[in-house]
Design a protein around this nucleic acid. Structure first.
Length: 295
DNA sequence: AACCAGGTGGAGC
DNA sequence: GCTCCACATGGT
């Protein structure tokens, strides 16, 4: 069943052809991989672009993505095995894209966003990122996370790591405020304390979507929308549809919906797109914001 | 200068 | 269950 072998050998996916060396992943058929689309689609915040080279940091890992021809990329990175999983190269996107493209209202945004991949991000990092994201904007979220990592993360050969749970425990409310987190500072400190004193982080991945959602919403700074983002980006649950201000605009402007409650809007989309809801949401979100420059 | 940003918590009903 | 409102902060 595994279509990939670890390290050195040619990886043959049904969608993408990939091979690795000790420090590089080569992508030879990037029909469903675009670094800009993936990194600027609002699922992740510790990225940058200089001279058309995209960099992404996660935990203590680091990757640089170079385009070598229209459909070929190389990813120079700290750990190829880690990043093959992180970029979700084990998942076949042709089926997902084709299924969603059959919905007339999604055809355009699927074509526009077919290079977006759903990153398989570490749970703790996603929880912190999306508590900060509440009622905030992406440039400011990026800036805050940058400051948090450079002040409280450990130095590596290629910049600062995201703080570990132990390192996060040492961050005070005032520290988070100095990193521009505003009133979310207290939520962060309180949630970090709970995560460090319970088994939630190990228990959450084994729960159903509904169960995990209940547990997440009980944490300070996490409501329905942030919980859905954590379920999607940190627990890889796809039967969720995070509703933020942009999705609300999509719902009223493009779907001509009349509900005002975000819970009901989320229900509307999940009943429409089912197990592919999380993907649909991400492509819609990316398409709706196509004129907003982040770099 | 109001309004917005990948909303949440709390009070009041 | 719901509907209001305050909340940090930087950008337009």
């Amino acid at each position: 069943m595994p279509k990939f072998k670890i390290c050195g050998i040619l990886y043959v996916g049904e969608v993408m052809q990939i091979h690795t060396t000790q420090d590089t992943i080569y992508i030879d058929d990037a029909q469903y991989f675009d670094p800009e689309a993936t990194l600027t689609s609002g699922q992740v915040f510790r990225f940058d672009c200089v001279d058309n080279v995209w960099t992404i940091r996660v935990q203590a890992e680091f990757a640089q993505i170079y385009q070598i021809s229209p459909s070929k990329y190389k990813i120079l990175c700290s750990n190829p095995n880690f990043f093959v999983n992180y970029f979700d190269f084990f998942t076949k996107y042709d089926n997902i894209i084709n299924s969603l493209s059959k919905f007339d209202e999604l055809a355009d945004c699927m074509e526009y966003g077919k290079g977006v991949r759903m990153l398989r991000q570490p749970l703790l990092e996603v929880i912190i990122n999306f508590i900060i994201s509440a009622n905030n904007n992406i440039p400011r979220i990026r800036k805050s996370l940058d400051m948090i990592c450079s002040r409280f993360g450990s130095p590596t050969n290629f910049g600062y790591a995201f703080p570990t749970l132990d390192e996060l425990l040492n961050i005070s409310i005032m520290d988070f405020e100095e990193c521009g987190c505003g009133y979310r500072a207290k939520y962060l400190v309180d949630t970090i304390r709970i995560l460090a004193t319970t088994d939630l982080l190990t228990a959450l991945p084994n729960m159903s979507t509904a169960e995990a959602r209940r547990e997440l919403i009980a944490l300070p700074g996490i409501g329905p929308k942030v919980a859905d983002c954590i379920l999607l980006f940190g627990l890889y649950k796809f039967d969720v549809f995070p509703v933020d201000t942009w999705v609300q605009k999509i719902y009223t402007q493009d779907y001509h919906g009349t509900q005002k409650s975000r819970t009901k809007i989320a229900d509307f989309f999940v009943s429409k797109y089912g197990e592919l809801s999380g993907y649909a949401q991400q492509y819609l979100f990316y398409h709706k914001r196509k004129d907003i420059k982040l770099i």
